[in-house]
């Protein structure tokens, strides 16, 4: 019987310590991803992580799977080629909020529309952490950042709502506080055929936290708990109350055929592996 894989088969322990700030939730998220891969017993060589640029974009430095670290905002576009080049691979795109929703917003919505079989894990810490704490498309309205000293004048994207509207097969939101839920969602997202999005609301004590909540990790973690409410409670709220919270939980779970299934159905000559020698 094959040896059971542990998260250590995916996680590059000799790269420790993590480069992220004390109190950053990215380490928690990385552990949840590697635990999920171990739970699913997917051999590391059948996994490619495609990372963006930014704090969370550094995640590939700690992975022992195949990895691609490209340009800002393009993890899904590179991932699309990786997946279509070898459809047997599990492609996991690791992107921050600015990476996925601002510079990479176009790839994000089209990946969902196309329903490409990629798992997108969006670490949303409400600002651009790597560049010093500027506002991003998910910074809550009127929050203070280095580029919105009085308060940001733009409303935030609802990442999950956007994903749903664009056609993703699986959409879920959790936080760095809700570790068990996080792992459960990532496991489900990896198993789902088609485009799946797990938005993880994350801590950034160094920048967003310090300017809007408090600079200590515990306060920022508590904030994530305070601003979220799970789906069953959320659904019982009136509209006025709903507006105060971000809903967590599994928000979409369906089985619309993914891009490659449809492409192959329409082009029967396209071989299963895509490496056919039919001519």
């Amino acid at each position: 019987m094959a040896v059971k894989l542990s998260y250590r088969e995916y996680f590059k322990e000799d790269a420790l310590p993590l480069m992220w700030c004390s109190g950053c939730g990215n380490g928690i998220l990385l552990r949840a991803i590697t635990d999920s891969l171990a739970d699913l017993q997917i051999p590391p060589h059948q996994v490619v992580v495609s990372t963006g640029i930014g704090c969370w974009g550094k995640a590939d430095d700690y992975m022992k799977t195949h990895a691609f670290h490209g340009s800002h905002g393009r993890a899904l576009a590179f991932g699309t080629g990786i997946k279509l080049g070898n459809p047997d691979l599990h492609v996991i795109a690791l992107m921050g909020d600015g990476d996925a929703l601002a510079i990479g917003g176009n790839h994000f919505i089209h990946s969902a529309r196309r329903n490409i079989d990629i798992t997108a894990v969006v670490s949303n810490n409400f600002n651009y952490g790597m560049t010093g704490g500027q506002y991003s498309p998910t910074t809550p309205l009127s929050s203070k950042t280095t580029t919105s000293p009085i308060g940001v004048a733009e409303p935030a994207f609802d990442v999950c709502g956007l994903s749903e509207q664009c056609g993703a097969n699986y959409v879920a939101r959790t936080t760095a506080y809700h570790v068990t839920q996080m792992k459960r969602m990532i496991t489900a997202a990896i198993q789902k055929k088609g485009f799946s999005v797990v938005e993880v609301l994350n801590t950034c004590p160094t920048h967003f936290g310090r300017r809007n909540i408090a600079g200590d990790p515990v306060s920022v973690m508590q904030y994530l708990k305070d601003i979220t409410v799970n789906k069953s409670r959320y659904e019982k709220m009136d509209e006025e109350e709903k507006a105060k919270y971000l809903v967590t939980g599994e928000l979409v779970n369906k089985d619309r055929p993914d891009f490659l299934s449809v492409y192959r159905e329409l082009n029967p000559a396209a071989s299963e592996t895509g490496r056919g020698e039919s001519k």
Binding site: F68, G70, A77, F78, G79, G81, L84, G85, N86
Partner: peptide, 11 residues
């Protein structure tokens, strides 16, 4: 981006 990805997947 997609052609770079696909090339790394061997095509």
């Amino acid at each position: 981006a997609a052609i770079i990805g696909a090339s790394l997947s061997g095509r």
